[in-house]
Structures are given as C-alpha cells and as structure tokens.
Write a protein that binds this DNA or RNA. Structure first.
Lengths: 340, 340
DNA sequence: TTGTAGGCGTTATCAA
DNA sequence: TTGATAACGCCTACAA
C-alpha cells in the first residue's frame, strides 16, 4: 500500500499541489468550497503527510531523545513513563537510550541523537560521567537540553532535581531522633552530584546533632550492582565489628535490600539490632519484609516536569525567542516503614 | 552553529555536489585524489549528513518503534534493554511507547509510529487488546512487524515467545511432586494468550496427575495492579476457608508478592502452610523474604531476538526480497526458592 | 482564489 | 572521472 501524497489529491481534483497543501492547513486564501473538496478526498483516501518531507522542510522532527543510566531501575522507568506520556500528548515521540553507567556510551549516544536531528535532549548522567563537553555540544547545536536527577552544575541549562542534600539530612536526622547514634552511610560513586549531596546531608545531620563524623563508617557503592554493593559493604562493616553501627543509611533502596539480606543471613535483626534507611522508594521497598524506610523521590513527576520544560524551550528556540533556564527542585518525603 | 552541507564542501573544493556525495560514500567512479580531499575537508569541518534529507530520499528512517504495556515491569524493562542495545549496534534508534494496558492507546500509538515513518514495529499487546486490525494495518503499510511475549495467533507475522503452557505445566507439576494437592491459580486477564496458556498448563498438570480441576480455585487478576490483585484474591480465598488450598500458582511474581503479603499479615506461613509460586523472575523475587520460586523468563534475550528478526525483515523488505516469518520459542527455567 | 516556482539536502541516473 | 539534473514530498513567497 503506497502512501498517498499531495500530488495525488491535486491530480484527482484537477487543482495544484499548492492549493491542496494550503486547503489542508486552512489557509485563509483558499475558498471554502475547495477546502471542503480537498479535505473530503484527503480523508477518504487516508492522506497522511509524509513526515520525512515535513521534517526536511521544517527542520524539526518532533522527536526528543532521552538518555538514562538504566530502565530497569524503578525510579528511571517511572521518569520515562512521565516523559513519554507528556511528550505523546504534545505530539512528540521519544527515543530512549541507555548509557548503562558508561560514559563512553553516553557520549556516543549524544552524537547519535544529534545526528538524527532530534528536537531536544533529556539526560540523567551516568555515574562515570566526569566531563561535560558532550553536553556543551548539544547546546552548541542549538538543541535544547534539560538535565534531570543526575546532573552537573558545570553546564548552563535547565535542570529538574530533588534537594538530595536536604532529603538525606532529614532522613539521617530522623534516625538520630529515633535514638540511633552510630550511623553508617553506604554512599554512591564519587562523581555524581546526587551522591555527593546525599553524603553531605548525612554528614551535616551528624554534625548538627553533635555526633562525630567517622569516615570509617562511610562505604562506597560503585560496582554497578547495587544489591551486591549493599551486601558486600555490610559484610565488610559487620565483620570488622558488628557493634560499630546501629543504623545504616544507603544511597538507594536496592543497596538497602542488599544490606538487609546480609544482616538476615547473619541473624542480625532489622531494625532491632541495626536499622536500615533507603532512598528513592522503589516499589520493592514497600513490599519487602521488613518494609524499608526511605525517601520518596517523585520519578513520574520529574519526567513530566523535565519534558514540559524541554518542549517549552524547543518552542522558544524555534521562534528565536530568548528564554531563561529553569531549575526545578521537586519535593521529596520521608516514608517511614519497618526497617527503622 | 549551522550544520554543514554537501553544498558547502562542494563550493569550498570547487567541485560538484554530486561528486562530493559520491566521494564520501566511496563510489568507485571517483578518483582517489578527490576522495581524499573531500573526506579530509568533511572531517575537518565536521560534516554529518542531514538525516531528514536522507530519510526523504531513502524512504527509511532507521528508527523502529516499540510498544509495551509498561516499562516499570522488570520483565519489560529487560526486554527494552535488549531491544535498544541490539538496535543501536545496528544503527537503529528506538522510539518507545507505553500502552499502559489500554487498547485505545495502543491503537493510537500504532498510528503515531506509522505516520512517523518508522522502519519496523515491535509490540507486546496490552491485556485489553481484543481485535487486531491495527496490527494488520502495520503489515498493510509494508512495515515489518514482530510480536513478542504477549502475542495473538490471529496475525501472520514473526513472533518471539516462551512456551507459557509448558512452563506453567512444569511449575505446577513441581508443586504436585512436592506433595501439594490443593493448588489454586491466580490467573491473568482473559484476553492475553499467555494468560490463557499458563492457565491451560496449570489445568493440564492437575489432570495429568489425577487431581480434579476446581474452578473455584481460579481467581482472575485484572485490575491493573498486580500486587493488589494478589493481595485481594488471597483475601477472598482465605476468608472463604483457609484450608481450601496448600499452594498458589500466580500469573506473575508481583501477584505472588501480594499474596505473600496477605498471608504474612494473617500469620499464615509460607511455604509451611501455603506455598506460593510466581512467574517471570523479577529481581524482587530473589531478594524477598521468603524468596519466591518462579519461572525465569528471558526478557533481555527476548528483546534481542525480536529486534534481530525485525531488522532482518526490514532488510529483506527494502530489497523486495520475500522472507518467511519466524516463530521463536525461548527456553524458560524453574527457579526454586524458599516460597515452595 | 489559484497556481508557479524554488528550495529543504541528499541520492542516483545519465550525459559529458 | 566529473557534473548537470531530476526527484523524494512538502511548504510558501510571489505571481497570475
């Protein structure tokens, strides 16, 4: 089945292609009668504009690109859901790429998107991303760029984040108020801003409550397998001396699950012996036993917000109107469950 | 930063556009010297072909479309990962759409993809899909189509699936061999083939082992929230009489988690009082306590396989060569854990 | 009110 | 070996 073109409609009605084109787009300088005839036939033979031609003319694809570290993370799949939903409603389709926490891949993917002529880019950086030329390149191509969740402060563009530092602070403060004193932190990798911020929030909460910060209670999770990281770090910590800690605050729920698994395997009770506090609020965290206290991170809303900003910038860009970058901080909330 | 065009290269080197084009694509009828000059300059000024123009000329976008019920399902996000990975390697980008188990949305999304001029479609049907004209439409547009996981037998095209019936049979048979006799089934919605097949496998396993099939032990999960479905159906079943069953086989792991949650809330021990058996092997199933026995469903491989078939068909289609539809059945395996 | 013509950037045919 | 030219399908300034 060959697609219908303007030309076919024009021939069938014995008028010019230009008139058909204008009729379909309701130009004021086409007679009502002609419009009617054109539209009727177009509908009948199922005319759909060839999007390749439209792209070429308008220099826009109505496609946006998204790069995320992984879709198997509950948080990111929620973000993606928000992105796709809003984009679709506004007539945009979404190309999804996964960096798998790989910086080289992330750079290559930026190029792929740019070469495809996407209208805008949404990205959450990989843990290994430590330079930002590839992001600057997007901007230099006059393609709007919005960073979300895992961002960098080194690039001037719109951003949608949570206040990681504050969220971590509040979580740790909660633990302290509950009476925990020896609080370990299983932090994320060294590069990501959110990993840094959560660590700083943790540290600050300790200091503000007159608890000495002990760097020996901080473990890094950077082996690209959160569950294993949680399990192994718990092992290291506990094997050193299980009375070193009475609570563990982790960079993400999956790490917390690994921790709990190790503790359970070793007959250490949660939260009686050691409390565990996660981050992100994966679905899993609510159904585990014990269910896991965590910080709820609004993924779906983040996706929606990020894409809305991006689409707005695309619109301005297209009209050559200037616009200011947005920096949205979405609220989080503490979810207290059985593990703390 | 304006993109570089062939024209600019041609002007700079005082040769024709045609020659530049051919030189860059290593046509045999361009002198080596010219090729060298062209390529050198192209590289220097960072020439990238305008993909809109290429699309228009070649009538292909090098983009494939994927429709899945949801990305937040561990299984589908794994499939997606496989799809994106292989596609990317072969030079294709992937547009992702989510039907959210909504048939109307699914139909609209097919149109969106078709109108965008994607080169092929991968789809896993929503639970509510009960007619297949939209799929036929894809085929009528000469766009290759591959169904995976949630398929229909009513459309002639390539398919990648598991043997749901057999997998369910083996799972239930395992339960029977373990000594369970009163085995309930929390099945999926009525339309999906895999839901039907798992049910049939369950039934057959009972019959083959001289256990009477009792339709009162079959509950349907179709409220679009697997966890709740599991919880509520368990509630209904147990409240009727908790000695009615000694095992529950569920359509998917999340239902199983809902079941376990209810049982735990009501002091019913798993597996001592009632065993639970899931399906799909979500990551969650392995870290829960009790960990959940399940059928491992190879999502990543399914995605890879499906996209490979699709790309092959795209290639053949483009050359107007005929091809046979593939029907791949991927192996599953039983994962026995604590819950059974 | 309608139509002509040029162009978006690339590819491919055919003549030089 | 190179280049002129048409074509992909659509849009739009301008002429009729």
């Amino acid at each position: 089945m060959k697609p219908v073109t303007l030309k076919q409609i024009a021939e069938e009605l014995h008028i010019s292609i230009a008139t058909v084109s204008k009729a379909l787009k309701d130009y004021p300088d086409v007679s009502k009668k002609t419009k009617k005839r054109v539209k009727k036939l177009a509908k009948k033979i199922n005319y759909v504009p060839n999007s390749f031609a439209v792209n070429l003319r308008t220099k826009s694809s109505k496609i946006i690109g998204v790069i995320i570290p992984a879709t198997v993370h509950h948080f990111f799949s929620n973000v993606l859901k928000g992105i796709v939903k809003v984009a679709e409603k506004k007539g945009y389709l979404v190309i999804v790429l996964q960096s798998n926490e790989n910086f080289e891949l992330e750079k290559r993917q930026i190029n792929l998107l740019l070469n495809k002529g996407i209208d805008g880019v949404l990205i959450s950086l990989s843990n290994k991303t430590n330079s930002y030329k590839h992001l600057q390149k997007v901007i230099d191509h006059d393609v709007p760029l919005v960073l979300f969740d895992k961002i960098t402060k080194n690039i001037k563009c719109s951003k949608v984040i949570i206040n990681d530092r504050q969220a971590a602070y509040i979580a740790v403060e909660y633990l302290i108020k509950k009476g925990y004193r020896k609080i370990a932190h299983f932090r994320g990798d060294l590069n990501p801003q959110n990993s840094i911020d959560r660590f700083l929030g943790y540290k600050q909460a300790l200091l503000d409550n007159n608890i000495e910060f002990d760097k020996n209670l901080v473990y890094i999770c950077n082996n690209n397998d959160d569950f294993e990281d949680g399990y192994n770090n718990a092992k290291k910590l506990i094997e050193k001396d299980k009375h070193l800690v009475d609570a563990i605050f982790t960079i993400t729920d999956v790490v917390a699950i690994g921790v709990i698994k190790y503790l359970r395997d070793n007959k250490i009770k949660v939260p009686e012996d050691i409390a565990v506090f996660g981050f992100s609020d994966w679905f899993m965290a609510s159904v585990m036993s014990p269910s896991i206290s965590t910080v709820h991170q609004p993924g779906f809303e983040m996706g929606k917000k990020a894409v809305k900003i991006l689409l707005k910038e695309i619109k301005f860009q297209k009209k050559n109107k200037p616009f200011n970058f947005s920096e949205i901080v979405l609220p989080t909330k503490l979810i207290i469950r059985e593990s703390s």
